[in-house]
Every structure is written in structure tokens, then in C-alpha cells.
């Protein structure tokens, strides 16, 4: 990560500061820290961060290319509902791990199909990106649970199957790091891989250059002989695929589908948007922000287990409030200049 940028330094400082502050309060109050910050907590934090990070990286790519995909939440709902339905269709009452992998793969393929349509509406037909994105959310909130009702006769599924941890022999024995990284869900490792790959791709490959140019100065990219809309299609479709994968991962970790209320996705797509804004459009920054938010989420559970009560509703608002502050205080969070503007080549 490029640490020379002042905005990035401030963000890092703020994130580390938040963590230290929580720890300091915990110490000052004499809370049993050792019972709170356990290896299990770190492991659960990583798992909680995984879907947020994936959706965030997807959304970041779309926005970098100049298209605001605020439909992440909706695409996540579809990803989760489709994975659940598919694993039930393929594996019946007792699906296997293989069924789960296949279902996830098919669900991501379906997400790609949806986003192709979405991207056509946004790019070719110049849809209002905000309204279309909100519509995807509504459609997901409607059709996601509807799928569940069709499949299980209920908005919630019965217990299906959840992803088992993968243990790397030897490495898993390392204290702390071992169980956290080498005895955990393979999806956590996959996400780490995706985050690093997304960073390399964005900043070190020509396609990454094009992606940035498409969002900042599409005309410059066009005159460089690159088809701007093709770049944007790729980015939007990738964002849908990542959001679909995020939903699939959420289901694979939970082991069942929940379609009541805001569904099991429950705002994680929106937090994904927050995460990349917080991470200043840097894939690793977004993943780090996802980790922070996931950790915060899990921390409440830890507090509860040691008997400390918090108004969860309020603590859950932290990411939203934080991003408002970040946007206001550090205007270094520069959105891509051409964000939301359809591009028409002058050919």
C-alpha cells in the first residue's frame, strides 16, 4: 500500500486509534481483555469481514471505472439466496461440501448474468445509477425471500451445509497465526488472495491503468485507443460477480438462508461501500476497513459473552457515522471525476 499519501496515513491512524481506544476503555474499566480478544474472536472477525471485503472490492472497481454500483446489497442478497436454493436443489436435505462449492459457483455465474443486464442498462441505456442501484436492492429484497418461499415454503431455509475449515498441516500448529490463517474457512484465504490480486491488478497492470483512467478522464483513455465502455462493462460485471460471491460466502459460513427483515445480508453490501470509501478506493484499504467493521461486529458478541451489555443498534452505526466524518474531514477522499457520467465516444 502506498503509505506516503497523507490521507492514507490519517485513515490508518484513525483505524489504529479506534482499536487502541476500545482497548484502553476495556483496560480502564477492568474488563477481562483476555476473555474478549481470543483466537476465536480473531477467527470470527476474519470470517465476518470476508463478505464485506469481497463486495467492497467489487464496488470499488465499478466506481473506479466511473460507474456507481449502489446495488451491491441487492446483488449480495441474490448471491446468498441463489446459493442456498442451488445447494438445496443439488444436494437435497444433506448437501455435501462439493455441492456447496458447485452451488456457489453457479450462484456467482447467475450474478454475472444479472449484472450483465444491469451493466447494459447503466452503460448502454444510461440509466440513473442511483435509482437503478436502489432498484436492485428492492428487487433483491423482494425476489431473494420470494425464492426462499418457493423453495422451502418459508423465507428462512432449514439448516443446509456450511463450509468446513481447512487445516494446513504443520502451519496450523503455529500459535495464534496458525489457527487464524491455517485452520480456517478456505473462503477467508480466498478473500485475502482476491484483495491482494485486486491491488496488484489495479496498480500494476495496464488494465488497472485503464480502469482508473475510465473513471477519471474517459476521453483521455478513449484517445489512447481504449474502448471506455468496454472497460466499464468489465468493471461493473466484476462488481456484480464479487457481490454475488460475497453473498455466497455469507451463506456458506452461516449454513442456512435467512430471508426475514433485511435478509441475512442485513446491510453488509452498504457497509461494503463504506469500506472502500474508508479505504480511499484502495483494495487493501477496503479489506482493512472490512476487517475493522467485522471486528467491531464480533466484538459486541465477545462483550456479551463476558457479560458486558452494549446498545448494539448504536454500535452498529459506527461505520456509517465514521464514513460521514471521513468524507467531511479529509476531502482527500476523491471520488473519480467522471463518476456517474455516461461516456459516449466521439467516433
Amino acid at each position: 500500500m502506498d503509505l506516503s499519501d497523507r490521507g492514507t496515513q490519517l485513515r490508518l491512524g484513525a483505524a489504529v486509534g479506534t482499536v487502541l481506544l476500545v482497548l484502553a476503555i476495556a483496560l480502564a474499566r477492568g474488563w477481562p481483555l483476555a476473555d474478549i480478544v481470543t483466537v476465536g474472536f480473531v477467527e470470527r472477525t476474519l470470517q465476518a469481514a470476508t463478505p464485506i471485503a469481497l463486495a467492497s472490492i467489487g464496488g470499488l472497481y465499478a466506481e473506479k471505472s466511473g460507474v456507481f454500483n449502489i446495488g451491491l446489497e441487492g446483488f449480495m442478497i441474490f448471491g446468498a439466496a441463489n446459493t442456498g436454493a442451488l445447494v438445496w436443489i443439488i444436494g437435497g436435505e444433506s448437501p455435501t461440501q462439493a455441492d456447496l462449492w458447485v452451488a456457489m459457483g453457479l450462484a456467482v455465474a447467475l450474478s454475472i448474468a444479472y449484472t450483465v443486464l444491469f451493466a447494459v442498462l447503466l452503460i448502454r441505456y444510461k440509466a440513473n445509477q442511483i435509482v437503478a442501484g436502489l432498484a436492485v436492492w428492492f428487487i433483491g429484497l423482494g425476489f431473494g425471500p420470494f425464492t426462499a418461499v418457493l423453495v422451502w415454503g418459508n423465507r428462512n431455509s432449514p439448516g443446509l451445509v456450511s463450509m468446513t475449515d481447512v487445516t494446513v498441516p504443520g502451519l496450523a500448529e503455529i500459535p495464534v497465526v496458525g489457527p487464524v490463517l491455517f485452520d480456517t474457512s478456505p473462503l477467508v484465504l480466498l478473500t485475502i488472495l482476491v484483495a491482494v490480486a485486486a491491488w496488484v491488478f489495479l496498480y500494476r497492470t495496464r488494465y488497472g491503468y485503464w480502469l482508473q483512467a475510465a473513471g477519471e478522464n474517459p476521453e483521455a483513455l478513449d484517445t489512447a485507443g481504449v474502448n471506455v465502455n468496454r472497460v466499464r462493462y468489465a468493471a461493473v460485471i466484476f462488481s456484480g460477480a464479487m457481490a454475488g460471491l460475497a453473498g455466497a460466502v455469507l451463506l456458506a459460513h452461516a449454513g442456512s438462508f435467512t430471508g426475514t427483515g433485511q435478509t441475512m445480508v442485513n446491510g453488509r453490501g452498504w457497509i461494503g461501500i463504506v469500506a472502500y470509501l474508508f479505504g480511499n478506493y484502495n483494495p487493501l484499504g477496503a479489506a482493512a476497513a472490512a476487517l475493522l467493521f467485522g471486528g467491531l461486529d464480533m466484538l459486541q458478541i465477545q462483550f456479551q459473552t463476558v457479560g458486558i451489555q452494549f446498545p448494539n443498534r448504536l454500535v452498529n452505526l459506527f461505520p456509517y457515522a465514521a464514513v460521514v466524518v471521513v468524507l467531511t474531514v479529509w476531502s482527500s477522499t476523491r471520488m473519480p471525476s467522471a463518476l456517474g457520467e455516461p461516456y459516449e465516444s466521439e467516433d
Binding site: 491503468y209 482508473q212 483512467a213 477519471e216 476521453e219 483521455a220 483513455l221 484517445t223 471525476s337
Partner: peptide
């Protein structure tokens, strides 16, 4: 026709 946040070389 320059991409402002990118470096001279990248542009």
C-alpha cells in the same frame, strides 16, 4: 487529455 491522479509516466 490527462488523468490527473495518475503519474506523468503512467499518463
Amino acid at each position: 487529455q490527462l488523468v490527473e491522479p495518475m503519474t506523468v509516466l503512467q499518463n
